[in-house]
Design a protein around this nucleic acid. Sequence first.
DNA 1: TGCGGATATGTCAAATATGACATATACTGC
DNA 2: GCAGTATATGTCATATTTGACATATCCGCA
Lengths: 109, 109
Amino acid sequence: MKTGKLKRLQAAGWKAGSAQDFLQLSDEEAMLVELRLSLIGAVKQSRQKHGLSQSELAKRIKSSQSRVAKIEAGDPSVSLDLIVRALFATGATRQELQRAFSPKERLAA
Amino acid sequence: MKTGKLKRLQAAGWKAGSAQDFLQLSDEEAMLVELRLSLIGAVKQSRQKHGLSQSELAKRIKSSQSRVAKIEAGDPSVSLDLIVRALFATGATRQELQRAFSPKERLAA
DNA sequence: TGCGGATATGTCAAATATGACATATACTGC
DNA sequence: GCAGTATATGTCATATTTGACATATCCGCA
């Protein structure tokens, strides 16, 4: 049942071109999206845990509040690089980063 | 002793603008570079382990042999996204990816 | 009600990453 | 020596990502 996968992706802020596009996602692509979701979650969590506003985090990574918002919204225009940068900038350790990579919940086949 | 850090970065294919640039690397930047190194190492290792040529891997990620070479050479023009994509495409599992994130060796201070 | 801070969304010019290509180098086996 | 295969390096037009900005929405609090 692939629809669950679709819902997840949409929930992450990915505007579907068409359902087909998503149903044709290769495993690698799915893994990448899943990875992004994990990291994004870690950013949100870590930022709030450290009591930072989006603007404050933005300053640390020399970006803008709007881009931080896009990071956390899972906007497709945001690169993995920027997500990881943001995560580090919140004060997250590499161990926390590692944890973000843990498949805490598995994708429905 | 910061020079070790510099050597590492240069070894990774980062052309120094000047030594200062590197000595001024923030911790977050250093972590990011270290992360890239780990992932790059994992790509090389996994690709060879699976008996793939750079050209074959390139096809899988719809790229070119030259870009795969740049990935493995640590070329600064290569994004984290592409590195991770390449790693997944070699057939690496998420667990292997996770291991690549492990700080197996620590940077000198 | 309105004010203030935080977050979200859309746009855009500039910056950066991209695949493709040419070409160079290295290492085989002949 | 040469041919074949793998990898490295440089360039470039195109594509994607960027920070910045405007503006909207949400949420307490007076």
